[in-house]
Structure formats: C-alpha cells, structure tokens
Amino acid sequence: MKSRFFLCYQIVDPSATKPEDWDEEAPAQIVDPNAVKPDGWLDDAPEMIPDPEAKKPSDWDEEMDGEWEAPLVDNPACAAAPGCGPWSPPLIPNPNYKGVWRAPLIPNPNYRGKWSPRRIPNPHYFYDENPFKMTPIHAVGFELWSMSPMLLFDNLIISDDMEAVTDWTQQTYSLKRAKISSESVSTPSLAISI
C-alpha cells in the first residue's frame, strides 16, 4: 500500500509552546460564588409527593405486582415558594476555562498550491471555419446489450429533411409494421425511429 503525503497551506507552529498559566484541567463551569439562596426556600419540602387522591386499583395483586405506591405529583407547597428541596447554587461559565491547548496554525512555507500540469500548444488543434459542413455518413453502428433475443433494428434513416423522412417511413416502415401486425396479433413489434 502506497503512503500519501499531502502538503497543507497551514501547519502547526513548531515553535509554539503552551503558556505557563494555561490550565487544561479547569472546568468549563463553576459554582456561582455570588449566588444566595432565595428567601422562603423550603429545604425540607420535597419537590414531588405521592398523589393524595390516588387509590390502589382493585385488581392490584401485591404478590404479582409488588407493593403499590401512589404516583408522584408536584408538591403544592412548592407552588408559592421560590423552590423546594436541597438548595445548591447555580453554575456559571468559568472565566478561567480555556480547554485543551493547541498550537496555533501558521502558513506552510513548503506549500505551493494545487499542482496542475503546464499547458502547451495543442499540435492537433485547428480552427474549423465551416463547422456546419459535415462529411457524408455511410454507416451507423449500434453497441447494444439486451436480455431479449427478439430485439431487431433495421431501416435506419438520418436526415435533416422531415418530408423525406415521412415519405420514406410511409413507403417502408409503415408497410412492414402493418404486415407484421396482420400476421401476428399477439406478437408486439418494436420500432425505433431516429
């Protein structure tokens, strides 16, 4: 397997070093040191309580289903309070967070851009002053691949005269198609006109 080496227009600065005060292990968020627990916070009240109106279903089988517990609902005592449960100060972005240190990129002195071959005059080039004048067509070739053995091509005509094509079609192709249709009603015929 061949190894390939690609030159980029920028490279990592080999002379760069990580600053001494760069702390890669500093967390992205820290506890807000200025946060204060709001007045009226209910530390001992849980945020969710068992629904007092819930009743054990009549078909509940403790041997099969286990001990029944009422579903939890929001504690109504917390609705009027600023919060319930253990209070913890919120997190804020760490002003000292810098993440993993990476050396900066600099222009690659060895980069010369995308290579392309130089251009030379084409020895076979010529200017066609009459591009509309074409040499006569003496043959037409088809290269086909088909799964059907009944696919046939014949009676080809190439012309820029629509009247000549229509007249030729009526004298040849239309007659042949009518004959094939009259001889075999069930055999479909395939015709391609150019």
Results as ranks from 00 to 15, higher is better:
1 M>R: 07
2 K>V: 09
3 S>R: 14
5 F>G: 04
6 F>M: 03
6 F>V: 15
8 C>N: 10
9 Y>A: 14
9 Y>H: 13
10 Q>T: 15
11 I>N: 02
14 P>R: 00
14 P>H: 01
16 A>T: 06
17 T>V: 13
17 T>E: 09
18 K>V: 09
18 K>A: 03
20 E>F: 00
22 W>F: 08
23 D>F: 03
23 D>V: 09
23 D>E: 07
24 E>K: 14
25 E>W: 03
26 A>P: 05
26 A>H: 06
26 A>M: 09
27 P>S: 11
28 A>G: 11
29 Q>L: 08
29 Q>C: 03
31 V>E: 13
32 D>T: 07
32 D>V: 02
33 P>G: 10
34 N>W: 02
34 N>T: 12
34 N>L: 05
36 V>G: 01
36 V>L: 05
38 P>C: 13
39 D>P: 00
41 W>V: 02
41 W>E: 08
45 A>N: 01
46 P>G: 02
48 M>P: 00
50 P>C: 08
50 P>W: 01
50 P>D: 09
51 D>L: 07
52 P>C: 10
54 A>N: 11
55 K>Y: 00
58 S>V: 06
59 D>R: 03
60 W>P: 12
61 D>F: 00
61 D>G: 00
61 D>C: 05
63 E>M: 11
65 D>T: 03
66 G>M: 13
69 E>I: 04
69 E>Q: 11
71 P>V: 09
71 P>Y: 07
72 L>C: 00
77 A>E: 15
77 A>V: 03
78 C>Q: 04
78 C>K: 02
80 A>C: 00
81 A>D: 08
83 G>F: 02
87 W>A: 01
89 P>T: 06
90 P>C: 10
93 P>A: 15
95 P>M: 04
96 N>F: 04
96 N>H: 09
96 N>Q: 13
96 N>I: 01
98 K>V: 11
99 G>Q: 07
101 W>M: 10
103 A>S: 15
104 P>R: 14
105 L>G: 01
106 I>C: 05
107 P>D: 15
108 N>S: 04
111 Y>P: 00
111 Y>Q: 05
115 W>Y: 15
115 W>N: 03
116 S>C: 04
118 R>V: 05
118 R>K: 15
119 R>L: 06
119 R>H: 03
120 I>W: 01
121 P>G: 04
121 P>T: 05
122 N>S: 13
123 P>I: 03
125 Y>K: 14
126 F>H: 12
126 F>A: 11
127 Y>N: 14
127 Y>I: 05
131 P>D: 06
132 F>H: 10
133 K>Y: 05
134 M>K: 15
135 T>N: 11
138 H>A: 05
138 H>D: 13
141 G>S: 14
142 F>L: 08
143 E>D: 15
144 L>S: 02
144 L>F: 09
145 W>H: 13
145 W>S: 13
151 L>P: 00
156 L>H: 10
156 L>M: 12
158 I>P: 01
159 S>V: 09
160 D>Y: 03
160 D>L: 09
168 W>F: 08
170 Q>L: 11
171 Q>I: 01
172 T>Q: 14
173 Y>P: 00
173 Y>K: 15
173 Y>H: 00
176 K>S: 15
178 A>E: 15
180 I>K: 10
181 S>V: 02
182 S>F: 06
183 E>A: 12
184 S>I: 00
188 P>W: 01
188 P>D: 11
190 L>H: 14
191 A>L: 13
191 A>E: 06
